[in-house]
Simulated scan of single mutants.
Amino acid sequence: MINKTIFQGLIIGVAFFGLWFGLTQVNFVKFFEIEKRTTSAENKIGDLIWDDIQQTGEVVTNDTIVKTLDKLINPICKANGIERDSLKIHILKKAEINAFALPNNHLVVYTGLITDCKKQEALQGVLGHEIAHIENNHVMKKLSKEVGLSVLLAAASGGKGGQIVKEVFKTLSSTAYDRALEKEADMQSVKYLLKADINPEPMADFMYELAQKHDIPSGFGWISTHPESEERAKYILDYLKGKKFQKKQILTQKEWDDYKKQVENY
């Protein structure tokens, strides 16, 4: 019994010493300084990219168009505990079917995406997907991997920042996330919609329809940056099999049709 007690005491002592030694080797000041710099860089780069994007097309400021998009997004945020005011959502007048997330919670939606969606739930699904990228910090994970943290910090501090910002934007708007992050965003969006009593099936239908189009390089940015969409549509529909869920629509069919026409004629 005594030997067992002594042995247990030795184990605790060794564990305590190991923990103490490990903690003494961590430079917490340096760690948190890097974390602080990274957050600051993310915020600045996101704002710089958005400033640059504004020069490429007309920002839609029509009150009705903006508020109607908010009307579609708000239930998703409310049902999932996402602070709507933390998202900086911009509508840009461009025919390309695209939407993408930027650092610092910017989310850019092209008018071409809105007008191409047959159903409002498809648009909500795409927006939920991009919100998931923001909420799960996929944007910075992608940039840190493809561009490099040191380059991002340099871009935020000036120098050749302008050129780097353009490269960062190109990376975000024209190249895909890796498959694991894409699937995570897909399924997170599906769960967002289910919690908000919105039918996710049109999101899968939208992916499938875009996958059948062949002129992707010139006009289908969202699908060209999100490959294997037919496969993704399938695993979304497989996930929904046997699930009972509400199919609440935020807009009436007439309101949705009128909204698309207003956006198209803007």
Rank of each mutant, 00 (worst) to 15 (best):
N105K: 14
A101K: 08
V108K: 06
S144I: 10
L102T: 09
N98T: 00
A101R: 10
F100Q: 01
I134Y: 06
I89F: 11
Q120E: 15
A132T: 13
T115H: 02
F100P: 02
Q120W: 08
A79S: 15
Y110T: 00
E121T: 11
G112F: 01
G125I: 08
I114W: 03
K142F: 06
R84G: 07
K145L: 10
I82G: 12
Q124N: 07
I97K: 11
K118W: 04
G112W: 02
Q124W: 04
S86E: 15
H106R: 06
N98A: 01
I134K: 04
V109G: 09
I82D: 12
V139S: 02
V108I: 15
G125N: 01
G112K: 00
P103C: 01
I134G: 02
L102N: 08
V108M: 05
I76H: 10
L87C: 10
N104M: 07
G112S: 03
N104G: 07
N104A: 13
I82H: 07
L92V: 11
N136G: 05
E135I: 15
C117L: 00
A99D: 00
K119M: 11
N105E: 14
E135S: 14
I114E: 03
C77F: 09
N80P: 07
H138S: 08
L123S: 02
I89T: 15
L87H: 12
I91D: 01
A122Q: 02
R84T: 13
L92E: 03
L127Q: 06
K145A: 14
A101V: 05
V139Y: 05
I89E: 08
K94W: 04
K94D: 14
N98F: 01
N98M: 00
K78E: 15
E96L: 05
A101H: 04
E146K: 12
E135N: 13
K78G: 03
F100G: 00
K119T: 08
K119C: 00
I134P: 05
E135P: 03
I131N: 11
K88C: 05
T111Q: 03
I91H: 04
E83W: 08
S86N: 14
K118G: 14
I91V: 14
K78N: 13
D85E: 13
K93N: 12
M140C: 06
L107F: 00
T115A: 03
L143H: 05
Y110N: 05
R84M: 11
V139P: 00
H106V: 06
S86T: 14
G125P: 05
K119F: 04
